[in-house]
Each structure stands twice: as structure tokens, then as C-alpha cells.
């Protein structure tokens, strides 16, 4: 059993607590993990520590699940990595590219797994699409169109570009693997549109945001989550809200996911990477790449025109 320390129960302001809402139940449900300690909570029936340094000194956990508030997050990740632990980092892994680069460097030095919780790339439809694209099913991809629209729920005080934007940016990166060089962004109401120019002339476009709640979804559910990949030999339309059954009764309509959820699938990959002694399928470089796109999008929103990605100090290493 791989032992897990839960470090922090904060998020991007408001009531956001992914540790309690998402990771804790997923670790508990996973046969390969056991939660052995917590920093910042004393109601979980495991030893509680006042701070991360104390916990790392005393606690035998191999994995630290970091959900500290974003301003403390990157430092905590680096601390845990330097202590030789594996890390699952709530997203965003950091608020700035600089912090994300520091985490990536620490992970490279420690040789342990550092996984940003970009769990949407583990959606079953996305995983199979990624494999099919990589196998050449649609030929050479030249365009991706993506929609990531969450219906209702609590708005993020830091904005949904920071909160939700990383997910589809990361999925697009996972699907086509071409770095982003230029970003044009436009905000309209609840939706931000990201128009990305990648290497090889590939373009992608992402709509992302938190829209009005809808009667058929729980607050915060995904109203639209899809990717269209156009390639030299075909088109793939990926609806990431699949696989789902639809239940219609006299009291309402709901969808029932037919397989493991995205967080469970992410933990399976985390466990496989740790026990296999290999990097995880998604690492700090992916977090850094996505954060750099978000930063460029912010600059583009201010400038009202496309902007290049900032020069990448990590370029030679990736």
C-alpha cells in the first residue's frame, strides 16, 4: 500500500476544497493507496500535523497530496519533492510559470513523481482519442476545436480562465502534443475563447467558462465537454461527457457515467508511475506549459490582440 499524506484543504478561494471533495474519497476508494496523515485537518481519523515540515519529518507517507492555498502551493510541492516524496498537486500546480518551473526543476532533481491534477485528460473518451490520434487514425492533425463549459456551481474568485482553463488546454496538449507559440484570447460574458497557434501550423480553439446552471445537471457539471480533431485523413468528434447512460423518469433526467471517474483514473496512473519507477503520463512540464498559455491569454486579453508565448527558460530541457 502506498501511503498518502494530505497536505492542505484549500483551493482557489471560496469554498473550494478539492482535497476533501475529490482526492480524499478517491484515495480511500483506491486499493493501492492508504491515507496516513493530514496537514490542516484533524477530523479524518489519521494523525494531524500543524505544518508540512513537521509532517515530512514524522510521517512515513510516500505521496503528498498538496491542496494548500495557491500562494503556498508551489513552495510546498518543492519541499515535498526535496524530501524525496511523490506529489499529487491540485491544479493549478502554481499561479505563475516561474513557480511551475521551480516545481519542474525540483521534480527533475528528486526523481520522484510530480503529477498535476489535470484529471480531465484521463476522461475515458479523451484517453482513447489520444491513443487513436497518436496511432494516426485521422492522419496529421491540423486543427482542434474544444468546448469546456461548466454549468452552474460556485464561480472562482480568481476567474474561470485560471480555474477551468487549464483542463482543456491540457487535454489539447495531450491530444496533439504540439507546443503553443501564440495566443489570442477574447472574453465574452461567462466564456473565454482561446485561439492558439501551435508548432507545425496546427491551430486550436478552446471555449471555456462557467455558464448558467441548467435543469438537467448538478451545479458544476459539464454542460459541454468535447473536442473535434481534424487531420489530413479524417475527423474525430470526441464527446468527453461520454460514456454515459441517460435516465429519464417521471421526476427528471440524469446521466449515469458508465465507468471509473476521471480522478480515479488519474490515481491509477499515479500509482502505476510510482510503483513502476517511471514519470507519470502528466508531469510538471505539462502544468508549466498550460500555465504559460493561461498567462499569455491574460496578456492577450489586456492587449486585445494575439501575443507570443513568453520565452521559455525550460525550452532546452523539455
Amino acid at each position: 500500500m502506498t501511503r498518502v499524506l494530505l497536505a492542505g484543504f484549500g483551493g482557489l478561494g471560496g469554498g473550494q476544497d478539492h482535497q476533501r471533495a475529490m482526492y480524499l474519497p478517491a484515495f480511500q476508494a483506491h486499493p493501492g493507496f492508504t491515507v496516513v496523515g493530514a496537514v490542516g485537518a484533524d477530523d479524518l481519523g489519521v494523525p494531524s500535523y500543524p505544518d508540512l515540515a513537521t509532517a515530512l519529518a514524522d510521517d512515513p507517507a510516500e505521496v503528498v497530496s498538496v491542496c494548500l492555498p495557491p500562494d503556498q502551493r508551489a513552495t510546498a510541492i518543492v519541499t515535498a519533492l526535496r524530501a524525496g516524496r511523490h506529489v499529487l498537486a491540485d491544479k493549478p500546480l502554481a499561479l505563475t510559470a516561474e513557480e511551475a518551473a521551480a516545481a519542474a526543476a525540483a521534480a527533475a532533481e528528486s526523481g520522484t513523481v510530480c503529477m498535476p491534477a489535470h484529471h480531465q485528460r484521463f476522461a475515458p473518451a479523451v484517453r482513447s482519442a489520444r491513443a487513436a490520434v497518436a496511432a494516426g487514425r485521422v492522419g496529421l492533425p491540423w486543427n482542434v476545436q474544444a468546448d469546456f463549459l461548466v454549468a452552474g456551481g460556485d464561480p472562482c474568485p480568481l476567474g474561470e480562465l485560471t480555474n477551468l482553463g487549464l483542463y482543456p488546454i491540457d487535454v489539447v496538449a495531450a491530444l496533439v502534443g504540439q507546443p503553443v507559440r501564440r495566443v489570442h484570447a477574447r472574453a465574452s460574458g461567462d466564456v473565454t475563447l482561446l485561439l492558439l497557434d501551435h508548432d507545425r501550423g496546427l491551430t486550436s480553439t478552446i471555449s471555456v467558462g462557467r455558464i448558467s446552471g441548467t435543469a438537467d445537471l448538478r451545479p458544476g457539471g459539464l454542460a459541454v465537454h468535447r473536442y473535434r480533431i481534424s487531420g489530413s485523413n479524417g475527423v474525430m468528434n470526441v464527446d468527453a461527457t461520454k460514456p454515459g447512460a441517460t435516465l429519464r423518469t417521471s421526476t427528471g433526467v440524469r446521466s449515469a457515467w458508465t465507468g471509473p471517474d476521471t480522478v480515479a483514473l488519474m490515481l491509477t496512473e499515479l500509482h502505476a508511475a510510482i510503483t513502476g519507477g517511471r514519470p507519470a503520463e502528466v508531469g510538471p512540464a505539462d502544468a508549466l506549459a498550460a500555465i504559460r498559455v493561461v498567462e499569455a491569454a491574460r496578456r492577450s486579453l489586456e492587449a486585445g490582440r494575439p501575443v507570443p508565448l513568453s520565452p521559455d527558460s525550460q525550452e532546452g530541457r523539455q
Partner: peptide
Amino acid sequence: ATALCEMSRGHRPATYAARDVLVVGEHGV
């Protein structure tokens, strides 16, 4: 508001034909 319009005669296979509309408004989608 922002509108994204795609017009293609470049998709493959040559027989491909698809139309897609999505509208997000203040009260829904």
C-alpha cells in the same frame, strides 16, 4: 458577444459534411 465561424472545404474524407451550432446565453446553452 463572440461568434466563432468555421467554414471548411478542406476536411477529409471528401464526403464529409457536418454542421454544428452552439450558443451560450445568459440563461443557458
